[in-house]
Amino acid sequence: MKAFDYAAPASLPEAVGLLASQPSARLLAGGTDLLVQLRSGRKDADVVIDVKKIPELNEISFNPADGLTIGAAVPCYRLTADAAIQSHYPALVEVASWIGGTQIQGRASLGGNLCNSAPSADSIPLLIALGATALIAGPAGRRSVPVDEFCTAPGRNQLAPGELLVSIQIPAPAPFSGAAYLRFIPRNEMDIAVVGAGASVTLSNGVISAARVALSSVAPTPLFVPAAGESLLNQMPTAEALEAAAKIAQEAASPISDMRGTAAYRRHLCAVMVRRALELAVARAQEIN
């Protein structure tokens, strides 16, 4: 690992200014991806900018009207312990308890997971399913990008030079809605998803009125499959309907073979994991009744 300098700005403007003046800077939140990449030589930095001292990036706030805002640097262990998240976003608690293990969750943030933009990122399919948006700050001010448009290629995303992620905003859950993220890993913990599936479902009088489906590890980016959700609209959540939606998601996938699984196996898993995630999301939507 090459030598670098360290800065810990205390405000967003300071961070944006620093980022603008340091083209080879890297942002550090939990460091669970960045420090591994720096150490293995996959990334370099002249300056590492620690964003954890910026108040806005450390906040969790929820209200029933606006929903949930998660600061980009909030570590997973704070999400899993948050009462509002526990009661309104159980799937988010699950995903935050599955990223790495206990110690990784002491550092890793959903913001970091999003900005690392790995195709296998566990939290992104769920964030897409939940209709989350990314709030970005930069030299030109602030802008919002839907999470389903955020990632552009493996390790790449919509952040322009000088920009940083401030927070992730998730709408308040609709009545009779449920969400789930499920991943397949060969072990029971400490693995990268071979396939991950996020799903959300809203029911109106027992009929699906909204649904979103996204996948991880089956395309160059986490993959939003609008057609899978749309196929469920105005349907009863029957096994056949969920199966059909899962098949649509499977068709959209373009997996590769690597050390974590073959393309054929991943394609097979797409249908299984999406169906199971939809089943769980439906069960959660019905539970609220």
Binding site: E189, M190, I192, R260
Partner: peptide, 28 residues
């Protein structure tokens, strides 16, 4: 069940970390 040296065709080990070598954890 899971452990192996996963080599690419050029003979490079693609899973040379505990993350991807997949030894049993306490939960397994």
């Amino acid at each position: 069940l899971n452990e192996e040296y996963f080599m690419d065709t050029a003979g490079d080990m693609r899973n040379g970390s505990y993350l991807d070598y997949r030894m049993p954890t306490a939960l397994d």
